[in-house]
Simulated scan of single mutants.
Amino acid sequence: MANGKILLVEDDEDFGRSLALILKHKGFATTWTGSGEQALAVLTEKNFDMVITDMLMPGMNGLEFLRQFRENYGTDTPVVMITGYGSVTEAVEAMKAGAFGYFLKPVNQDEICLTIEKALEMGRLKNENLLLRQEIKESKGDLLIGESPLIRCLFQEAAALAKSDVNILITGESGSGKEVLARFIHDQSPRSPRPFFAINCQAYALSLIESELFGYRGGSFTGAKAKGKVGKIESAAGGTLFLDEIGDLDPTVQVKLLRVLETKTIEPVGGTTAIPVDFRLISATNQDLTLCIAEKKFREDLYYRINTVKLYVPPLRERKEDIPALAGHFIRR
Protein backbone atom coordinates (compact mmCIF):
# COMPACT_ATOMS: atom_id res chain seq x y z
CA MET A 1 0.00 0.00 0.00
CA ALA A 2 1.38 3.43 -0.99
CA ASN A 3 2.36 5.81 1.78
CA GLY A 4 1.22 8.86 -0.17
CA LYS A 5 0.83 10.33 -3.65
CA ILE A 6 3.78 12.48 -4.74
CA LEU A 7 4.12 14.74 -7.76
CA LEU A 8 7.77 15.02 -8.86
CA VAL A 9 8.68 17.98 -11.10
CA GLU A 10 12.18 17.52 -12.58
CA ASP A 11 13.54 18.40 -16.05
CA ASP A 12 16.73 16.30 -15.70
CA GLU A 13 15.62 12.97 -17.17
CA ASP A 14 18.28 10.81 -15.50
CA PHE A 15 17.83 12.39 -12.06
CA GLY A 16 14.04 12.44 -12.38
CA ARG A 17 13.80 8.77 -13.36
CA SER A 18 16.23 7.75 -10.60
CA LEU A 19 14.41 9.71 -7.85
CA ALA A 20 11.01 8.49 -9.04
CA LEU A 21 12.20 4.86 -8.81
CA ILE A 22 13.61 5.44 -5.32
CA LEU A 23 10.35 6.95 -4.12
CA LYS A 24 8.28 4.15 -5.64
CA HIS A 25 10.58 1.60 -4.01
CA LYS A 26 9.93 3.34 -0.66
CA GLY A 27 6.19 2.87 -1.19
CA PHE A 28 5.21 6.32 -2.49
CA ALA A 29 2.89 6.51 -5.50
CA THR A 30 4.96 8.88 -7.65
CA THR A 31 4.02 10.79 -10.80
CA TRP A 32 6.97 12.37 -12.63
CA THR A 33 6.64 15.41 -14.92
CA GLY A 34 9.41 17.25 -16.75
CA SER A 35 8.33 20.88 -16.25
CA GLY A 36 6.28 23.21 -14.12
CA GLU A 37 3.82 23.70 -16.97
CA GLN A 38 3.27 19.93 -17.27
CA ALA A 39 2.88 19.64 -13.50
CA LEU A 40 0.16 22.31 -13.41
CA ALA A 41 -1.67 20.48 -16.19
CA VAL A 42 -1.49 17.17 -14.26
CA LEU A 43 -2.75 18.91 -11.12
CA THR A 44 -6.00 19.83 -12.87
CA GLU A 45 -6.79 16.11 -13.14
CA LYS A 46 -5.20 14.51 -10.06
CA ASN A 47 -4.75 15.27 -6.37
CA PHE A 48 -1.43 14.76 -4.59
CA ASP A 49 -0.37 14.58 -0.96
CA MET A 50 2.97 16.24 -1.66
CA VAL A 51 5.04 17.91 -4.40
CA ILE A 52 8.81 17.74 -5.00
CA THR A 53 10.14 20.21 -7.56
CA ASP A 54 13.49 21.21 -9.02
CA MET A 55 14.41 24.89 -8.76
CA LEU A 56 16.16 25.49 -12.10
CA MET A 57 14.08 24.36 -15.08
CA PRO A 58 13.50 25.70 -18.61
CA GLY A 59 10.40 27.88 -18.88
CA MET A 60 8.71 28.08 -15.50
CA ASN A 61 11.32 27.69 -12.76
CA GLY A 62 10.70 26.06 -9.39
CA LEU A 63 9.91 29.25 -7.48
CA GLU A 64 7.43 30.39 -10.15
CA PHE A 65 5.80 26.95 -10.08
CA LEU A 66 5.63 27.01 -6.26
CA ARG A 67 3.99 30.44 -6.21
CA GLN A 68 1.48 29.40 -8.89
CA PHE A 69 0.77 26.16 -7.05
CA ARG A 70 0.14 28.01 -3.78
CA GLU A 71 -2.13 30.50 -5.54
CA ASN A 72 -4.17 27.73 -7.17
CA TYR A 73 -4.23 25.08 -4.43
CA GLY A 74 -3.54 26.84 -1.12
CA THR A 75 -0.98 26.01 1.54
CA ASP A 76 -2.12 22.61 2.80
CA THR A 77 -0.02 20.47 0.43
CA PRO A 78 3.69 20.40 1.40
CA VAL A 79 6.25 21.24 -1.30
CA VAL A 80 9.95 20.28 -1.16
CA MET A 81 12.50 22.06 -3.38
CA ILE A 82 15.65 20.45 -4.84
CA THR A 83 18.47 22.10 -6.79
CA GLY A 84 21.97 21.50 -8.04
CA TYR A 85 23.03 25.15 -7.64
CA GLY A 86 21.90 26.26 -4.23
CA SER A 87 22.46 29.49 -2.38
CA VAL A 88 21.33 30.90 0.93
CA THR A 89 19.27 33.58 -0.86
CA GLU A 90 17.56 30.96 -2.98
CA ALA A 91 16.75 28.82 0.04
CA VAL A 92 15.29 31.80 1.89
CA GLU A 93 13.15 32.71 -1.13
CA ALA A 94 11.87 29.14 -1.32
CA MET A 95 10.90 29.11 2.35
CA LYS A 96 9.21 32.51 2.04
CA ALA A 97 7.20 31.15 -0.89
CA GLY A 98 5.97 28.31 1.31
CA ALA A 99 8.40 25.42 0.73
CA PHE A 100 8.45 22.70 3.39
CA GLY A 101 12.07 21.75 2.74
CA TYR A 102 15.09 22.48 0.55
CA PHE A 103 17.68 19.96 -0.70
CA LEU A 104 20.89 20.17 -2.72
CA LYS A 105 21.75 17.59 -5.38
CA PRO A 106 22.93 14.90 -5.06
CA VAL A 107 20.05 14.18 -2.67
CA ASN A 108 20.63 11.94 0.33
CA GLN A 109 17.95 9.23 0.06
CA ASP A 110 17.46 8.76 3.78
CA GLU A 111 17.22 12.50 4.47
CA ILE A 112 14.70 13.27 1.73
CA CYS A 113 12.58 10.22 2.60
CA LEU A 114 12.54 11.29 6.25
CA THR A 115 11.46 14.80 5.21
CA ILE A 116 8.76 13.33 2.97
CA GLU A 117 7.41 11.20 5.81
CA LYS A 118 7.36 14.22 8.15
CA ALA A 119 5.60 16.35 5.55
CA LEU A 120 2.99 13.68 4.80
CA GLU A 121 2.39 13.11 8.51
CA MET A 122 1.88 16.84 8.99
CA GLY A 123 -0.61 16.83 6.12
CA ARG A 124 -2.50 13.90 7.64
CA LEU A 125 -2.63 15.66 11.01
CA LYS A 126 -4.00 18.81 9.36
CA ASN A 127 -6.73 16.80 7.64
CA GLU A 128 -7.60 14.97 10.85
CA ASN A 129 -7.74 18.29 12.68
CA LEU A 130 -10.10 19.74 10.08
CA LEU A 131 -12.36 16.67 10.30
CA LEU A 132 -12.30 16.82 14.10
CA ARG A 133 -13.17 20.52 14.07
CA GLN A 134 -16.11 19.79 11.78
CA GLU A 135 -17.31 16.91 13.97
CA ILE A 136 -17.04 19.10 17.07
CA LYS A 137 -18.92 21.88 15.29
CA GLU A 138 -21.71 19.49 14.32
CA SER A 139 -21.87 17.85 17.74
CA LYS A 140 -22.10 21.24 19.47
CA GLY A 141 -25.17 22.06 17.44
CA ASP A 142 -26.64 18.63 18.24
CA LEU A 143 -26.46 19.29 21.98
CA LEU A 144 -29.32 21.75 21.59
CA ILE A 145 -31.14 19.67 19.00
CA GLY A 146 -34.90 19.56 19.10
CA GLU A 147 -38.13 19.72 17.16
CA SER A 148 -39.92 22.29 19.29
CA PRO A 149 -40.74 25.70 17.82
CA LEU A 150 -38.77 27.29 20.68
CA ILE A 151 -35.48 25.59 19.88
CA ARG A 152 -35.89 25.90 16.12
CA CYS A 153 -36.53 29.62 16.41
CA LEU A 154 -33.55 30.01 18.79
CA PHE A 155 -31.12 28.35 16.40
CA GLN A 156 -32.42 30.23 13.37
CA GLU A 157 -31.90 33.52 15.21
CA ALA A 158 -28.48 32.45 16.52
CA ALA A 159 -27.31 31.40 13.04
CA ALA A 160 -28.39 34.75 11.63
CA LEU A 161 -26.66 36.68 14.43
CA ALA A 162 -23.47 34.69 13.90
CA LYS A 163 -22.94 36.45 10.58
CA SER A 164 -22.87 39.85 12.30
CA ASP A 165 -20.45 41.04 14.97
CA VAL A 166 -22.87 42.37 17.60
CA ASN A 167 -22.44 41.66 21.30
CA ILE A 168 -24.93 39.07 22.52
CA LEU A 169 -26.36 38.42 25.96
CA ILE A 170 -27.63 34.87 26.51
CA THR A 171 -30.05 34.35 29.39
CA GLY A 172 -31.40 31.16 30.89
CA GLU A 173 -31.20 28.88 33.87
CA SER A 174 -28.00 27.11 34.90
CA GLY A 175 -27.50 23.99 32.79
CA SER A 176 -29.83 25.08 30.01
CA GLY A 177 -27.03 25.22 27.43
CA LYS A 178 -25.92 28.85 27.28
CA GLU A 179 -22.26 28.05 26.60
CA VAL A 180 -23.25 25.49 23.96
CA LEU A 181 -25.24 28.20 22.19
CA ALA A 182 -22.31 30.64 22.47
CA ARG A 183 -19.96 28.08 20.89
CA PHE A 184 -22.50 27.44 18.14
CA ILE A 185 -22.60 31.16 17.33
CA HIS A 186 -18.79 31.32 17.24
CA ASP A 187 -18.53 28.23 15.02
CA GLN A 188 -21.05 29.65 12.55
CA SER A 189 -19.37 33.06 12.43
CA PRO A 190 -16.53 34.42 10.28
CA ARG A 191 -14.45 34.33 13.47
CA SER A 192 -14.63 30.52 13.73
CA PRO A 193 -10.99 29.91 12.67
CA ARG A 194 -9.85 32.06 15.59
CA PRO A 195 -9.96 31.18 19.32
CA PHE A 196 -13.04 30.80 21.51
CA PHE A 197 -12.32 31.50 25.19
CA ALA A 198 -14.88 30.86 27.92
CA ILE A 199 -14.54 32.33 31.43
CA ASN A 200 -16.93 31.72 34.30
CA CYS A 201 -16.98 34.97 36.24
CA GLN A 202 -18.20 33.13 39.37
CA ALA A 203 -15.09 30.98 39.51
CA TYR A 204 -12.50 33.71 40.11
CA ALA A 205 -11.63 36.00 42.99
CA LEU A 206 -11.33 39.72 42.15
CA SER A 207 -7.53 39.72 41.81
CA LEU A 208 -7.59 36.62 39.62
CA ILE A 209 -10.41 37.59 37.27
CA GLU A 210 -8.71 40.91 36.56
CA SER A 211 -5.40 39.34 35.54
CA GLU A 212 -7.20 36.52 33.72
CA LEU A 213 -9.12 38.96 31.54
CA PHE A 214 -6.65 41.80 31.07
CA GLY A 215 -3.28 40.15 31.74
CA TYR A 216 -0.47 41.80 33.63
CA ARG A 217 3.08 43.04 33.26
CA GLY A 218 5.96 41.32 35.07
CA GLY A 219 6.45 42.50 38.65
CA SER A 220 3.19 44.45 38.70
CA PHE A 221 2.10 42.81 41.96
CA THR A 222 3.37 40.36 44.57
CA GLY A 223 3.52 36.89 43.08
CA ALA A 224 3.36 38.08 39.48
CA LYS A 225 5.38 36.07 36.98
CA ALA A 226 8.53 37.84 35.80
CA LYS A 227 7.44 37.59 32.17
CA GLY A 228 3.92 38.77 32.88
CA LYS A 229 0.81 37.18 31.42
CA VAL A 230 -1.34 37.74 28.34
CA GLY A 231 -5.01 38.08 29.27
CA LYS A 232 -7.88 36.21 27.65
CA ILE A 233 -9.17 39.37 25.94
CA GLU A 234 -5.88 39.85 24.12
CA SER A 235 -5.53 36.10 23.46
CA ALA A 236 -8.97 36.04 21.84
CA ALA A 237 -7.66 38.25 19.01
CA GLY A 238 -9.95 37.84 16.02
CA GLY A 239 -12.08 35.34 17.93
CA THR A 240 -14.79 35.23 20.58
CA LEU A 241 -14.74 35.81 24.34
CA PHE A 242 -17.57 34.18 26.30
CA LEU A 243 -18.19 35.57 29.80
CA ASP A 244 -20.46 33.20 31.67
CA GLU A 245 -22.36 34.46 34.72
CA ILE A 246 -21.36 38.04 33.95
CA GLY A 247 -23.80 39.22 36.62
CA ASP A 248 -21.26 38.10 39.22
CA LEU A 249 -18.48 40.26 37.79
CA ASP A 250 -17.03 42.59 40.42
CA PRO A 251 -18.00 46.28 39.90
CA THR A 252 -14.35 47.37 39.55
CA VAL A 253 -13.84 44.86 36.76
CA GLN A 254 -17.11 45.96 35.18
CA VAL A 255 -15.63 49.45 34.81
CA LYS A 256 -12.52 48.11 33.05
CA LEU A 257 -14.57 45.86 30.76
CA LEU A 258 -16.80 48.79 29.81
CA ARG A 259 -13.74 50.81 28.83
CA VAL A 260 -12.46 47.93 26.71
CA LEU A 261 -15.77 47.74 24.85
CA GLU A 262 -15.81 51.52 24.34
CA THR A 263 -12.21 51.96 23.21
CA LYS A 264 -11.38 48.52 21.75
CA THR A 265 -8.13 48.62 23.74
CA ILE A 266 -6.88 47.07 26.97
CA GLU A 267 -4.28 48.03 29.54
CA PRO A 268 -2.78 45.01 31.35
CA VAL A 269 -2.45 45.26 35.13
CA GLY A 270 0.72 47.27 35.76
CA GLY A 271 0.89 48.39 32.14
CA THR A 272 0.93 51.95 30.83
CA THR A 273 0.33 51.41 27.12
CA ALA A 274 -3.06 50.68 25.56
CA ILE A 275 -3.14 47.58 23.36
CA PRO A 276 -5.67 47.41 20.48
CA VAL A 277 -7.94 44.35 20.68
CA ASP A 278 -10.39 42.77 18.25
CA PHE A 279 -12.85 40.24 19.67
CA ARG A 280 -16.54 39.43 19.74
CA LEU A 281 -18.16 39.38 23.19
CA ILE A 282 -20.88 36.92 24.12
CA SER A 283 -22.09 37.09 27.72
CA ALA A 284 -24.44 34.87 29.69
CA THR A 285 -26.30 35.05 32.96
CA ASN A 286 -28.92 33.19 34.97
CA GLN A 287 -29.83 36.42 36.78
CA ASP A 288 -32.20 39.26 35.99
CA LEU A 289 -29.62 41.97 35.26
CA THR A 290 -32.23 44.73 35.33
CA LEU A 291 -32.85 43.78 38.97
CA CYS A 292 -29.08 43.77 39.58
CA ILE A 293 -28.94 47.29 38.10
CA ALA A 294 -31.72 48.44 40.44
CA GLU A 295 -29.78 46.98 43.37
CA LYS A 296 -26.58 48.77 42.22
CA LYS A 297 -24.82 45.43 41.63
CA PHE A 298 -24.44 45.82 37.87
CA ARG A 299 -23.64 48.89 35.77
CA GLU A 300 -26.43 50.06 33.52
CA ASP A 301 -24.03 51.42 30.87
CA LEU A 302 -22.24 48.05 30.70
CA TYR A 303 -25.58 46.26 30.45
CA TYR A 304 -26.47 48.17 27.30
CA ARG A 305 -23.00 47.49 25.85
CA ILE A 306 -23.26 43.72 26.28
CA ASN A 307 -26.97 43.50 25.48
CA THR A 308 -27.04 44.59 21.84
CA VAL A 309 -29.11 41.45 21.22
CA LYS A 310 -30.56 39.09 23.82
CA LEU A 311 -31.17 35.35 23.37
CA TYR A 312 -33.11 33.20 25.82
CA VAL A 313 -32.35 29.48 26.19
CA PRO A 314 -35.49 27.74 27.47
CA PRO A 315 -35.10 24.92 30.03
CA LEU A 316 -36.13 21.44 28.95
CA ARG A 317 -39.38 21.60 30.93
CA GLU A 318 -40.55 24.35 28.55
CA ARG A 319 -39.85 22.17 25.49
CA LYS A 320 -40.73 18.65 26.58
CA GLU A 321 -41.26 17.58 22.97
CA ASP A 322 -37.46 17.75 22.56
CA ILE A 323 -36.83 15.02 25.15
CA PRO A 324 -37.05 12.06 22.67
CA ALA A 325 -34.60 13.73 20.24
CA LEU A 326 -32.14 14.51 23.04
CA ALA A 327 -32.43 11.00 24.48
CA GLY A 328 -31.74 9.52 21.05
CA HIS A 329 -28.70 11.76 20.62
CA PHE A 330 -27.10 10.64 23.88
CA ILE A 331 -27.92 6.96 23.25
CA ARG A 332 -26.15 7.15 19.87
CA ARG A 333 -23.09 8.65 21.57
Rank of each mutant, 00 (worst) to 15 (best):
N3W: 01
K5H: 11
K5D: 13
I6V: 13
E10H: 05
D11A: 11
D11C: 10
D12F: 03
E13F: 05
L19A: 12
L19H: 14
L19P: 05
A20F: 14
T30A: 10
T30I: 00
S35T: 05
S35Q: 03
G36D: 05
E37Y: 10
E37A: 02
A41T: 07
L43C: 13
L43R: 09
T44P: 02
N47P: 00
N47V: 00
M50D: 06
L56Q: 15
M57C: 13
E64L: 08
E64H: 09
Q68W: 00
G74S: 04
D76A: 06
P78V: 03
V80Y: 06
V80M: 15
I82C: 03
G84N: 10
S87T: 14
A91M: 14
A94L: 15
A97P: 02
A99K: 04
F100K: 02
F100L: 01
F103E: 05
E117L: 08
K118V: 04
E121R: 08
L125C: 06
L125T: 00
K126Q: 11
K126P: 00
L130I: 01
L131S: 07
L132Y: 12
Q134V: 01
E138Q: 14
G141K: 03
L143N: 02
L143G: 02
I145Y: 15
I145E: 14
I151R: 01
R152G: 15
L154K: 01
Q156G: 04
E157R: 12
A160F: 15
L161E: 04
A162T: 00
S164A: 11
I170V: 06
T171K: 12
S174T: 13
G177D: 01
E179T: 13
R183P: 01
I185T: 03
H186T: 10
D187M: 13
Q188I: 00
R191M: 07
S192C: 08
R194A: 09
F196I: 04
C201E: 01
C201Q: 00
Q202M: 13
I209C: 11
E210G: 14
G215D: 01
R217K: 08
A224S: 09
K229M: 14
A236Q: 06
A236P: 05
G239L: 14
L241E: 04
F242G: 13
L243G: 08
E245N: 14
I246P: 03
I246T: 09
I246C: 08
G247K: 03
P251Y: 01
T252D: 15
V253C: 12
K256P: 12
R259G: 06
V260D: 05
I266H: 11
P268V: 03
T273C: 07
A274L: 08
P276N: 05
P276Y: 07
V277C: 04
T285K: 00
L289T: 06
L289V: 11
L291K: 08
C292S: 13
A294L: 11
K296L: 10
K297P: 00
K297F: 08
F298C: 01
R299N: 14
Y303D: 12
N307G: 09
T308A: 15
V309K: 13
V309A: 13
K310V: 10
P315Y: 10
P315T: 06
R317S: 05
E318R: 11
R319D: 14
E321L: 11
A325D: 07
L326R: 02
G328E: 12
